[in-house]
């Protein structure tokens, strides 16, 4: 009994967020007869892996007090490397994938090394990387989309007998691993501590620089995996893919209660943030809302979700 109570108590802070998600589902189910159906679930599960990978890295980066604006471009780099290696050089996916992920990880590591090493705000460094990596993508692909086809599509399509794709399962596993890293490992604890009070961490005799650089590299690695997810979904390496996705990733983290000031965040809640954004997109599309209205509503929901969370924290404190 006590165990159950403890479990519920742990769950309590997440209920507000889950409630927002359920309310959205309820609204769309009333507005559209087609929404509350298995096909919608499959469609959403098919859409989310790219953003899910990105928010795992983004959550960690935000927790240490940084930000990564280059995720969309690093995703595109990874996708381009996959396309060029698999099509132009006819490599197999297993040979191309490690290279693609490595390239994106190096991009993230460079972000971290410059930002931490020289004390430059990560906002600026990753803004630079956003441009550089996008430009490099266009150089590598000659600014043309590369069609890969079935050799990569299988990764993004539902497995026979299951409703979900390997990409989705892989993304969920990454969320769980990310959350375990954050809450159960020494490094995860350090991340939260660094974001809370970096000077106190230093004065406790802990070197934080290598860890912080590694976190940026992990964010880059996540971009590499997101690149795989997106390329397999589209069957194509598109140099103009995922433009502006960094804002969706940050929005998902913030909806999930991650602080932009650092020190607070939770990978699972960020994933719920991804679901909220995706349910909104899919739902609005089904209801037949115009693109313009879709943007407005998405913006409103982001702000309202964060507002509800802020008010809830304030009430629970007083």
């Amino acid at each position: 009994m006590n165990r159950l109570q403890g479990f519920l108590k742990q769950l309590a802070p997440h209920l507000g967020l889950v409630a927002v998600l359920l309310v959205l589902v309820a609204i769309f189910s009333t507005l559209s007869n087609n929404f509350f159906q298995m096909s919608t679930v499959i469609s959403i599960a098919n859409q989310v892996p790219d953003l899910t990978f990105l928010v795992v890295g983004m959550t960690l980066v935000l927790i240490i007090g940084g930000i990564d604006l280059s995720v969309g471009s690093l995703l595109a780099v990874s996708s381009a490397v996959l396309g060029v290696l698999m099509v132009n050089y006819e490599w197999s996916i297993w040979a191309a994938l490690p290279i693609a992920v490595l390239v994106a990880s190096i991009g993230g590591g460079v972000n971290g090394a410059i930002s931490i090493g020289f004390g430059i705000p990560s906002f600026i460094v990753t803004l630079g990387m956003l441009e550089i990596a996008r430009g490099a993508t266009k150089v590598v692909t000659d600014s043309k989309a590369i069609y890969i086809g079935s050799r990569i599509e299988w990764f993004g399509q539902p497995l026979p007998g299951a409703f979900v794709s390997p990409a989705f399962m892989f993304a969920i596993a990454t969320v769980v691993l990310g959350q375990l890293f954050l809450t159960r490992t020494v490094w995860g604890r350090y991340c939260i501590a660094i974001g809370t009070n970096a000077e106190a961490v230093r004065m406790s005799g802990i070197r934080s620089a290598p860890l912080c650089i590694a976190i940026f590299a992990i964010s880059g690695m996540m971009c590499g995996l997101a690149g795989l997810a997106q390329t397999s979904r589209l069957s194509t390496a598109d140099p103009n893919a995922a433009i502006g996705i960094e804002l969706a990733a940050i929005a998902a983290c913030v909806i999930g209660g991650t602080s932009l000031m650092g020190g607070r965040g939770n990978v699972i809640r960020s994933f719920i943030g991804v679901l909220i954004i995706q349910v909104l997109q899919t739902g609005l599309a089904q209801v037949g809302v115009s693109d313009a209205s879709k943007q407005i509503i998405t913006g409103v929901v982001i702000v309202v979700a964060v507002l509800i969370d802020a008010l809830r924290t304030r009430w629970s404190r007083s």
Binding site: R189, Y190, A193, T196, N197, A200, S204
Partner: peptide
């Protein structure tokens, strides 16, 4: 520069000894 004010007493108390005393291959 001494405490993590928004973190629990437990996490503050173990901070300096986390790696030496409470770590099993990195797991807390």
């Amino acid at each position: 520069n001494g405490l993590l004010l928004t973190q629990p007493i437990r996490a503050n108390t173990s901070l300096a000894a986390l790696a030496t005393k409470f770590s099993a291959k990195g797991w807390i």
